[in-house]
């Protein structure tokens, strides 16, 4: 597909977006200095006797912060793209069976080829995710369009069925503990050498900007897309491929964070609209910021112990989600 990059369309510098990037960088800096082990700034700067501090920074703190940034960004972008392709505000990889399918894929690898390098594990997980999401999209297009809530409800059930199969085999083969780490995002175990696949997810999120216009057009419907001479099927395939790989990368590294993308994509839509050329950078930045903030809260609430980021995001997110639902009811009811 021919790339369509026209970043000069809006010459006016997006001051708000720059400010948001600044906030996220500030959060990232804060995130670097929270932890059980002491890492005084002075040690880092002096250089003498700071070797341990630098070691800590390079092996644990920076990887964790970078992983949070990449995950938040790519999960937000994946959710927004998915919402365009499904033309539904309530879908994201954790409400459509995508993440559950990626977990199933990973389980299959763990059972059949446990020695496979992690990159290939991700490839298998993303092909499971891709196949399942495509199947779900076909399923959704077959059901009559009623309430927009039917799609995510169906998706949650669909994911539940897949998850039941996965859990059964995980139980039989004593892998339940691994299974839990795949789907419940937890960044406390992120160390150098164990999160780098997330750069693929982050890279895909950035690349998806090149097709931003196409995803927006797809969000306006198949007829609309074909009227403009674009290949709807190809846009859907590209979008699903991005979503699947992002989900798989999350599952094989730090785990996914339910509802993160859904919430971020909805809030951004309210603020700046659905033109992806404008919304995608906002979703990427807000996703990263939201996840960082949740992780920082999770680390501080019961210091020196940690609450998994997924739990914090779930609590904050369900509040936002409720607000979104009620707001919609008020507007259309």
């Amino acid at each position: 597909m021919q790339a369509v990059a026209s970043m000069s369309v809006r010459v006016r510098p997006a001051a708000g977006l720059m400010l948001a990037v600044g906030c996220v960088l500030a959060l990232a800096a804060v995130s670097l200095f929270i932890g059980v082990a002491d890492m005084p700034l002075g040690d880092l700067i002096r250089g003498d006797g700071g070797a341990q501090a630098i070691q800590l920074l390079l092996v644990s703190r920076i990887p964790r912060t970078v992983a949070l940034l990449l995950s938040g960004m790519s999960m937000g972008v994946a959710a927004l793209i998915m919402q365009m392709l499904f033309r539904n505000r309530f879908v994201e990889p954790t409400t459509t069976g995508t993440v559950e399918a990626a977990s199933l894929g990973l389980l299959v690898v763990a059972l059949l080829a446990p020695g496979l390098p992690i990159f290939y594990k991700m490839v298998v997980a993303s092909s499971f995710a891709l196949g399942t999401t495509f199947l779900f999209l076909r399923l959704v297009s077959k059901i009559p369009t009623g309430s927009s809530l039917v799609v995510p409800l169906l998706g949650l059930m669909f994911g539940g069925v897949i998850n039941a199969v996965t859990t059964f085999f995980a139980y039989r083969y004593d892998l339940l503990q691994s299974l839990a780490t795949w789907t419940n995002g937890d960044f406390s175990g992120v160390l150098r050498g164990r999160y780098e696949l997330l750069f693929i997810a982050g890279g895909l999120a950035v690349l998806s900007y090149l097709a931003a216009d196409r995803f927006t057009v797809a969000g306006l419907g198949e007829s609309f897309t074909r009227n403009l001479g674009l290949n709807y099927g190809r846009i859907v395939a590209l979008g699903l491929a991005i979503v699947s790989m992002v989900s798989a990368a999350a599952v094989v590294t730090a785990g996914t964070v339910p509802f993160l993308g859904l919430i971020v994509a909805n809030l951004v839509s309210l603020a700046v609209g659905d033109n992806l050329r404008r919304a995608l950078p906002w979703v990427a930045v807000s996703g990263a910021g939201f996840l960082l903030a949740c992780d920082i809260i999770g680390r501080l609430v019961r210091f020196p112990y940690e609450i998994p980021v997924g739990t914090v995001a779930g609590v904050l997110g369900s509040g936002v989600f409720l607000f979104l639902l009620l707001r919609r009811r008020a507007r259309f009811g």
Binding site: R87, R89, S148, D213, T216, V217, G219, L220, G221, F224, L228, G229, L230, S269, L270, G273, D274, N275
Partner: peptide, 17 residues
């Protein structure tokens, strides 16, 4: 699709695609 939050200007501009 009326649920899409596009401005009038953005929608019309897509006609030029």
């Amino acid at each position: 699709q009326v649920g899409m939050r596009l401005t009038v200007n953005e929608l019309v501009a897509f006609g030029r695609f």
